[in-house]
Simulated scan of single mutants.
Amino acid sequence: MIKRNCILAIGLALSSIIVHAETDDGYALSTAIWDDSNINVCWENTSHSSALQRSWITTAIQNTWEKESDVNFIGWGQCNASSDGIRIQVNDSGPHTKGLGNQLDGTINGMVLNFTYANWSPSCQSNI
């Protein structure tokens, strides 16, 4: 149960990336669909995570969103003041987003991921 809850928290944060998709199982929020199939992604604070931890996210995105859609997530470097796209902050708090799909475009700390679980949900530490 603990492992599933930890994975669910990360999955909910990642699933907020709405892209154009045709499916019988659900519907995209039409106002949140990205205009371009190339979506920039950057990290707000690379010093709060390792290259390995960040690669977990890029691999997960490649094996899901990019594999099953026509979208490409590009960049993946350090954010700067004018970075657009999805800006990911690594923080020891509950994983979340500040919007869906294109609502995240350029939003500082628009997506928050937790790689340590030292303070928030420490029971997840054994399943990082």
Rank of each mutant, 00 (worst) to 15 (best):
M1G: 05
R4G: 13
N5V: 07
I10C: 08
G11H: 02
G11S: 12
L12C: 07
S16K: 02
I17W: 12
H20C: 04
H20P: 03
E22L: 04
T23F: 10
D24F: 11
D24P: 11
G26M: 01
A28L: 00
L29F: 13
L29H: 06
S30P: 07
W34A: 12
D35M: 01
N40S: 14
V41Y: 13
C42V: 09
C42D: 10
C42E: 06
W43S: 05
E44N: 12
N45V: 12
N45C: 11
T46C: 03
T46P: 13
S47V: 14
S47L: 09
S47H: 11
A51L: 11
Q53V: 00
R54K: 13
R54H: 02
W56M: 14
W56T: 06
T58F: 04
I61W: 03
I61V: 15
Q62E: 15
N63L: 15
W65F: 15
E68R: 08
E68P: 00
N72L: 12
F73S: 01
F73I: 08
I74A: 06
I74F: 04
G75F: 06
G77V: 08
Q78H: 14
C79Y: 14
A81Q: 13
G85W: 03
I86N: 03
I86V: 14
R87P: 10
R87T: 08
G94S: 05
G94C: 00
H96T: 04
T97Y: 07
N102R: 02
T107S: 03
N109H: 06
G110H: 02
G110F: 04
M111D: 01
M111H: 04
V112T: 14
V112S: 12
V112P: 01
L113H: 05
N114W: 02
Y117E: 04
A118M: 10
A118C: 09
W120C: 03
S121A: 15
C124V: 10
Q125S: 11
